[in-house]
Nucleic acid binder design. Structure first.
Lengths: 110, 110
DNA sequence: GGCCAGGTATGATGCAAGTCGTACCTGGGA
DNA sequence: TCCCAGGTACGACTTGCATCATACCTGGCC
């Protein structure tokens, strides 16, 4: 499977899955960093330097992708992830702001 | 408030705990019903008719309380739960709207 | 007083989720 | 060409969570 499947459309996004995905601090960190960056920014999984193994990183990014929060595109050797900012904002307005606000506070662990 | 332990102040609410609490469809149902009702409405745990045992209901309400989403007050024989609407709205603006919007759609917890 | 309804506390259980190691695939560079 | 780096797939392990049954406490009511 080269690139896109498992990328739900905006209407197919489920709040339960989104909240479950965002319940993990590592995944929240990823989304927060993406949300804090410029729109459309594409980053590799490894660029986040998560304190877990490669297999676990893959697992977290899969969870985010299946929840509809990020979009992963194969780019030859690597794979770039982008935040589905417009889709999220349309479907769950204000959600990203909550995550960014978390980072603006004490932030803390992961 | 003589009773309250386990009721975090607004500033003490953690997004992680809130999202984890809201990741469960039963708990989301409770908050959604409370949010859809009038402000300050006090309901007993049993009034939600959750399809689980009493012990499980207690567990869910404890989770919601410790996340800071509801306030439970002993009222003699029973115990009334109220949504901490203002606190939630101040700390996580727009969050309740997302839950209510979920109910307005296809709904049905799963 | 005795009884019952609403909640809580305490295990115990089953399943989902996070984690890892290892093997594997792909593409770029030496 | 060989090798390495970035990711994925698979299997295994462990912890956490939702669930339950049971026992218990409290306050209202007959």
């Amino acid at each position: 499977m080269p690139d896109e499947q498992g990328h739900p459309e905006p209407a197919e996004m489920e709040l339960g899955k989104v909240l479950s995905a965002l319940a993990d601090p590592l995944r929240r960190l990823v989304v927060r960093e993406l949300a804090a960056g410029p729109d459309g920014e594409a980053r590799t999984c490894s660029s986040f330097a998560l304190p877990v193994s490669k297999a676990t990183v893959t697992h977290h990014f899969r969870t985010l992708r299946e929840a509809g929060l990020i979009c992963q595109v194969d780019r030859g050797n690597s794979r770039k992830a982008t935040l589905r900012r417009a889709d999220i904002e349309q479907r769950f307005p204000g959600l990203l702001a909550l995550l960014v606000a978390e980072g603006a506070r004490g932030d803390s662990q992961a």
